[in-house]
């Protein structure tokens, strides 16, 4: 049933558009969202790498619970949780099924669970860290870690251009549909209809590519007039852009509490080894 629901929703373009805009521009005033993005990124790196250095089940479960609690605090969008759940459940069920047919026994599942736990910890940690983070904040953090400035520009650009691009693509598709003729009979499993839409989706990229090329040139020329390339490589411009990043009391609290919790999890793991 979930599949049918998702299918119906996916084919309602308006819904998709609204949902996307909501996720991209929604308010993100959560606990993790308010912290300095650099601290969050380092936290994420540590937490997602830790599970790969251990096979201790207690530590893994502790980490999973810890990241889940943080993810719950950050109030993640239901769409994202839904997509993640579908992915994990599908993957798990699928692996179990194949192992079963290949003649595996319960032991196979047990060791698979360890692996799945590790992957789950990684994805929950990334949700907790990044779902509530403003994309521009994230790009600032990356910039301060030395990622090329082009990336941080691309984030800002995408953030602003997304609605325009989506509108334009939708309009091209609508005009294709206006001038075209949908198949009268849907055929077996509606394949004729699916084929009709697939062809439109692909053909619509022809005008889309040309239009985007024109717009891109305008954008870049406007940027160059303001000395954009120069600012990309200027240390001073970078410093000014990142001056708002500061580590204060809140961040210190977060760092201290994470250290304590991670230590407790590891000590517990070594005391109660299963």
């Amino acid at each position: 049933m979930e599949f049918v629901e998702r299918f119906k929703k996916s084919f309602n373009i308006e819904w998709v558009k609204l949902e996307l805009l909501k996720t991209a521009y929604g308010k993100k005033e959560t606990y993790m969202g308010q912290l300095d993005p650099r601290v969050i990124m380092i936290w994420y790196l540590i937490v997602s790498l830790l599970p790969w250095f251990t096979f201790n089940f207690v530590i893994l479960i502790g980490l999973a619970i810890y990241t889940s609690v943080l993810a719950l605090i950050t109030r993640v969008s239901p769409l994202i949780i839904f997509l993640l759940a579908i992915g994990v459940i599908g993957e798990l069920g699928y692996i179990f099924l194949v192992v079963f047919f290949m003649g595996g026994d319960f032991e196979a599942y047990a060791s698979l669970i360890t692996l799945t736990l590790k992957i789950i910890i990684m994805s929950i940690a990334s949700i907790a860290a990044f779902a509530s983070m403003d994309p521009e904040k994230l790009s600032d953090a990356l910039l301060s870690f030395g990622v090329p400035a082009q990336f941080s520009f691309a984030v800002s650009y995408g953030y602003r251009m997304l609605p325009i691009l989506m509108d334009e693509y939708q309009q091209i598709i609508q005009s294709f549909r206006l001038r075209g003729k949908a198949p009268e009979k849907a055929g077996f499993l509606k394949w004729k209809l699916v084929y009709y839409y697939v062809v439109i989706v692909i053909k619509a990229f022809y005008p889309m590519m040309l239009n985007t090329a024109k717009r891109t040139r305008t954008t870049v020329e406007a940027l160059e007039v303001r000395g954009f390339s120069y600012s990309l490589h200027s240390e001073e411009a970078k410093k000014q852009k990142l001056s708002h990043l500061k580590i204060k009391g809140k961040e210190y609290q977060f760092i201290a509490s994470s250290c304590v919790i991670l230590t407790i999890i590891h000590v517990a793991g070594h005391l109660y080894y299963i």
């Binding site: 940690a125 779902a131 994309p135 994230l138 995408g158």
Partner: peptide, 8 residues
């Protein structure tokens, strides 16, 4: 990133 689905 914009979908809030950044996988790190």
């Amino acid at each position: 990133l914009l979908l809030g689905d950044f996988g790190g």
